[in-house]
């Protein structure tokens, strides 16, 4: 690892720690990491939009036209229309012409909603309804081979899924108060949903823990490469501990500042 790589990986580790410092409280390290990532991402997305959006989707498609003819002589002149709509969005900066920006927005929302209606109806209503009308596997009602209530393809599971679906749908019925038998079915519905949510929660928490472990492994590997001078680490450089101890000094200085701040605030209160 050369010094340049070391500095950048150290910086990455520093940013990891700075982000985790948020668990203690808001502090200058977290603020630095936050502002850095927000600023970098905003700048990054401008470049991405320019090179992956505007250039290939607009400029290159109009490229065979001439600017003095407003690209109307290009082979795909219709691309000028979305370009104009995009420019109309900029009218927001003028108080007088701000209304112009509503046109492209209205068009965008209108088209998107129009596209979403058949798609939602197909995927979230028709297909799910069709999938619910299953033929119950009566032959293997309590499991395939042996008695097994956890067999997800058994007739019993199919029936549970069906009843759960119907009960959950009833929970989302807003025109009737959840009372009596209707309320009991709705309660069963919300219980079904909660069981599903619990499983989903556990699954995602496991995934997050694995992300955390991954990050900590990175930190550990960084330490191994940087400070293992006793072993056969030919990448070791004297600069590594110097940068590291500077960083530690920095943190200690902040802790002292925090303690001082705490003591001062106590004195002021008294």
């Amino acid at each position: 690892m050369d010094l340049g790589t070391f500095l950048w990986t150290t910086f990455a580790v520093f940013l990891t720690m700075a982000t985790f410092s948020f668990l203690y409280k808001d502090n200058p390290f977290y603020k630095f990491a936050e502002h850095l990532v927000v600023g970098v991402s905003a700048g990054y997305f401008v470049v991405i939009l320019w090179f992956n959006g505007l250039i290939p989707n607009l400029f290159q498609r109009l490229a065979d036209g001439d600017w003095y003819l407003l690209w109307l002589n290009s082979s795909k002149p219709w691309y000028i229309i979305p370009a104009i709509l995009g420019i109309m969005m900029w009218a927001r900066f003028s108080k007088k012409y701000a209304w112009l920006s509503r046109w492209p927005m209205a068009l965008y929302i209108g088209i998107s909603t129009g596209l979403a209606i058949p798609l939602t109806m197909s995927n979230q209503v028709n297909k799910q309804l069709y999938a619910t009308m299953v033929k119950i596997d009566w032959a293997h009602f309590f499991g395939h081979g042996s008695f097994n209530l956890l067999d997800t393809t058994s007739g019993f599971s199919q029936l549970i899924i069906f009843v759960g679906t119907i009960a959950s749908l009833i929970y989302f019925f807003f025109s009737k108060a959840h009372k009596g038998v209707f309320g009991a079915v709705a309660k069963f519905g919300i219980w079904t949903l909660m069981i599903g949510f619990g499983a989903s929660f556990g699954f995602t928490v496991m995934a997050r823990i694995s992300l955390f472990i991954n990050r900590m492994q990175d930190v550990k590997d960084w330490g191994k490469v940087a400070f293992n001078y006793s072993g056969n680490n030919q990448n070791y450089s004297v600069w590594f501990p110097i940068v590291f101890w500077l960083f530690i000094l920095f943190v200690i200085a902040y802790i002292i500042y925090e303690i001082g701040y705490y003591l001062r605030s106590r004195t002021n209160k008294a």
Binding site: Y130, M133, I136, I166, L169, F172, F173, F174
Partner: peptide
């Protein structure tokens, strides 16, 4: 309200469909 009635329709159709399918 329309959504609610559509849901009621879906529940009825699902039950009929399950019986028919079986």
């Amino acid at each position: 309200k329309a959504q609610d009635y559509a849901k009621a329709l879906v529940i009825i159709l699902a039950i009929i469909g399950l019986i028919m399918s079986n």
